[in-house]
Amino acid sequence: MKSNNNIIESDKFSFWYGNIRALKEIDIQIEKNKITAIIGPSGCGKSTLIRSFNRMNDVYENAIYGGRITFKGINIFDKKTEITDLRKCVGMIFQKPNPFPMSLWENIAYGPKTHGIHEKSHLDEIVERSIKLAALWDEVENRLGESALGLSGGQQQRLCIARALSIEPEVLLLDEPTSALDPIATGKIENLIIELKNKYTIAIVTHNMQQAARISDYTAFLYLGELVEFGPTRDIFERPKEKLTERYITGRFG
């Protein structure tokens, strides 16, 4: 959506894995303090797109970019942009919870420590605030010294969100954050995501259209690397403009 409130914008952004073009001239805007969902069939490029927002795709040797993506008006592919600074501002949560094999406390304190905070009382404060923000505190406040691997899947995922929040990012990117969780844990994460949009901006990739419909303000539909339709979530799921969108969300595909 064209707005002055956009925190991330892409302008004819293309992406190639070597010879394979994964994204074709994507123009998308991520609005501040909103939840933007990205949907589409497997292989449509939705994860590639969200991973481009904090340059996660740089790890691929033959990754080639075209066009541009700006974060708060600054081109993230500019040589002057420090990737670590970008990733501090744009955090990411993955499909499978991936806590470090350390205590809960250390999981959260790890990021702030690498950013130069060492005072115990300050770190305690950050740990408590982050875990509270992730709506996990009541369940783990007496277990902060225990291994994070002892938590349930849903708790682990909220711990990962708390870890991402510990360095006070502005944007959270979530790549299918609930696809490995049961409906109750999924519900908790969804409520958390809706809570978090007051303070953060969220972009979420999801296979679950009902989830996109439940939590997002805007929805983008990607197909074969192209942005087919992008608009208010209600419109996309109730009266999509594009035939292709309609065929996908009504299951008339193939």
Partner: peptide, 9 residues
């Protein structure tokens, strides 16, 4: 089926 779009309508 939790239908969407024209099916929902």
């Amino acid at each position: 089926y939790q239908p969407m779009a024209k099916d929902l309508r």
